[in-house]
């Protein structure tokens, strides 16, 4: 065999000694070893079959709620029997291949991946015959109009996608408006300033999300509710009034040091949740953008660019927190038309 492979050029420092001699395995030379391997392998297959029966027994006998080491007993039993059986079958087959099947290495010659020049010429001739018979080259008018129509085929395929969704309408008002009560997001109860201690943070929503119509159905529910939540969710925090440094025009947006901000991160829209009382910082759990709530929600760290929009607060006649208006800034993650929409909001106020 080695002379056939012995084509190493003379510039090579070491000649190819050719394939080493075949090494016989213990199972090739010792009948007892061979028998033992055979028994081992069949043993694995037999145990696998038993485990699979065990799988069925477990499926029928085990109760759904039974636990095993605090873990679903059903899940454990089914997985262990199935996995064990599969592993035994796999290992058995591989052992069979390794220990008992013929293990003489074979040599196959490679050929260049490309076709021979002759094959290329023949195929090219066939191609040309075909093209010439079609008259593709001789009839430019047909050819061009064919290409035209093929190109035009793109039109329906694109236009058909038009109804995937409505055209983007940019920033729409959130549910907040003048007089809308701020309610906590667990039970929908309205919040009095006295309910909040300094340093405390409450997750809140507009009261309309908890209102029912006269038949007892929620006014807003399902998908619409989720869409509105993803814009209107807020957090209400109480800080010491002297710590707060409101921007011009925002001096009256709080009630006794209670401020309200959008809960939706201006980065990519995670609900923000981690509040550090001492620093007045609010941290987004998704990419750690940090906003300073004592300083108008400005970004102090992280990938978010815009400050958290602030909702101006007041109290109504019953002493509950209400919104003075909708947000004056676009809430949620940025989008291409944001600059335009923000300008519109600015013009309005």
């Amino acid at each position: 065999m080695s002379d056939e492979l012995d084509r190493v050029p003379d510039t090579e420092p070491v000649r190819d000694p050719g394939l080493p001699e075949h090494q016989y395995r213990p199972t090739d030379v010792d009948a007892a070893q061979d028998k033992r391997a055979e028994r081992q392998i069949s043993g694995m297959f037999a145990v696998a079959a038993l485990l699979l029966v065990g799988f069925c027994v477990g499926y029928i006998m085990i109760d759904k709620d039974q636990t095993f080491l605090g873990w679903s007993a059903m899940n454990f039993t089914l997985g262990a029997t199935l996995g064990g059986a599969l592993l035994l079958m796999g290992v058995g087959i591989i052992q069979w291949a390794k220990k008992l099947m013929g293990d003489h290495e074979m040599v196959e010659l490679r050929h260049p991946a490309g076709s021979t020049a002759e094959d290329r010429a023949d195929t090219l001739k066939d191609l040309n015959d075909g093209i010439n018979e079609s008259g593709f080259g001789r009839r430019p008018m047909i050819r061009r109009t064919l290409f035209l129509s093929m190109g035009a085929l793109a039109l329906p395929s694109v236009i058909l996608l038009r109804d995937m969704g409505p055209l983007p309408y940019g920033h729409k008002n959130t549910l907040w408006k003048k007089g809308m009560r701020v309610v906590n997001d667990v039970a929908g109860t309205p919040i009095k300033p006295s309910d909040l201690q300094v340093g405390q943070l409450v997750n809140a929503e507009p009261a309309i999300m908890y209102e029912k119509d006269k038949d007892g159905h929620p006014v807003i529910e399902g998908t619409e509710l989720l869409q509105e939540k993803s814009k209107a969710a807020v957090i209400v925090v109480r800080m010491r009034p002297e710590d707060i440094t409101p921007d011009k025009g925002r001096e009256n947006w709080g009630v006794d040091g209670i401020l309200c901000y959008s809960k939706i991160c201006t980065h990519v829209g995670c609900p923000i949740s981690l509040w550090e009382q001492q620093t007045h910082h609010l941290l987004c759990p998704c990419h750690q953008s940090t906003f300073d709530l004592a300083d108008n929600g400005k970004v102090v760290f992280g990938p978010a660019h815009r400050p958290l929009p602030q909702l101006p607060l007041a109290v109504d006649a019953d002493g509950y927190l209400i919104a003075v208006s909708d947000f004056t800034e676009v809430v949620g993650p940025s989008y291409p038309e944001l600059a335009r929409d923000q300008k519109r909001l600015d013009d309005k106020s």
């Binding site: 080695s2 394939l19 290495e105 040599v107």
Partner: peptide, 11 residues
């Protein structure tokens, strides 16, 4: 040894 650019050796 015996494994070159021109062949493939194995099972």
């Amino acid at each position: 040894p015996g494994r070159t650019e021109k062949n493939v050796v194995g099972y």
